[in-house]
Design a protein around this nucleic acid. Structure first.
Lengths: 171, 171
DNA sequence: CCCCACTTGTTTAAAGTTCAAGCAGTGCCG
DNA sequence: CGGCACTGCTTGAACTTTAAACAAGTGGGG
């Protein structure tokens, strides 16, 4: 991970410049505030945190409104463990149901119920509006484009299997 | 919050365009992955999550390495409650100490201990390197500048006292 | 067919976060 | 100086997340 191990630095660390620090601080502030904001908004209107909402959306967009657990976890960028807990909670709410996979007895599908779909239909407009007000309405088209490019680059660099990805000489 | 209440939408919701959806999806992915990545890195190297690390940094940069609880909470964009729990944990680690405020008996200072400072000194280079590798090394100078502007705009719109800020006609 | 490494998903306990309630101290207004 | 609303911070309970260990199933050699 680090070229300079935390326990015994080798050489002068490459500190952030003042400008970089400013950018980084803004990034932390904005993402912290935005996550809090959206979590609160959805907790209010839909009774679940943002990431749970994202799971329902993903299911709604999938064929037959279902998806294998591992696949869903990967799409949502969370661990299988976390997903397991989340689905258990959503199941208790009646918004998702589990189904066995016929071809692989280990496998489970998470399936969006009608009730889950209904929650989504009811709360989606409010959520979209919140995102709009907090982000898109404040940015110029160029800034929106730029934001997309930047975030794609960052996400790409952190994608799965990044273990070893920054240590290519060890593979 | 919503011009269209979640329970009973009024008028056609302003959905996100395909392009906006793409930007938003990238944003969610990137911030989720990056937060996980940095949390894991710091948990490994420093034995605490990213937000706790940020608290120590803030204290280290403050006069006399101390700050009032409420002020610290505001800087870190977290609730006083959360800070209270966090400081309790950091105190148990010996990295922070509480001190009473002489002029206001309700008040508490969070003070960075020498041990806490040492942890910071030891782990900062690795953390900076991680941030660099994940973000700054991948972005052009123009993109860095752009990212800073965009995040400042978003953070600004979400700043404190935003309750009522989007309902100016009610004030 | 059997072993063994790997995949899928869940479980447990500990750590972190949130929300609502609460206590103590402050300061103003009569 | 006596209430009273407010501030500063903490607490406890409920919930979410994480890490590590686990159970169960798959699939490729030997």
């Amino acid at each position: 991970m680090n070229t300079a191990p935390a326990s015994e630095p080798s050489g002068e660390p490459r500190w952030l410049t003042d400008q970089e620090q400013g950018v980084w601080r803004s990034y932390i502030e904005a993402t912290t505030l935005l996550e809090d904001h959206l979590d609160r908004q959805l907790q209010q209107d839909a009774g679940m945190p943002h990431i749970y909402y994202g799971l329902l959306v993903q299911l709604a967009e999938s064929p037959r409104r279902r998806m294998r657990m591992t696949e869903l976890a990967m799409h949502a960028k969370i661990t299988r463990s976390r997903l397991s807990h989340a689905v258990a909670r959503l199941e208790k709410n009646g918004w998702v149901r589990r189904e066995d996979c016929p071809s692989d007895k280990r496998g489970q599908f998470a399936v969006l119920t009608d009730e889950g779909y209904e929650v989504l239909r009811r709360t989606a407009p409010g959520h979209v509006e919140a995102v709009r007000q907090a982000v898109f309405d404040r940015l110029s088209p160029e800034q929106q484009k730029s934001l997309g490019e930047i975030m794609r680059i960052i996400a790409e660099g952190l994608q799965p299997k990044e273990a070893g990805a920054d240590l290519p000489w060890l593979r």
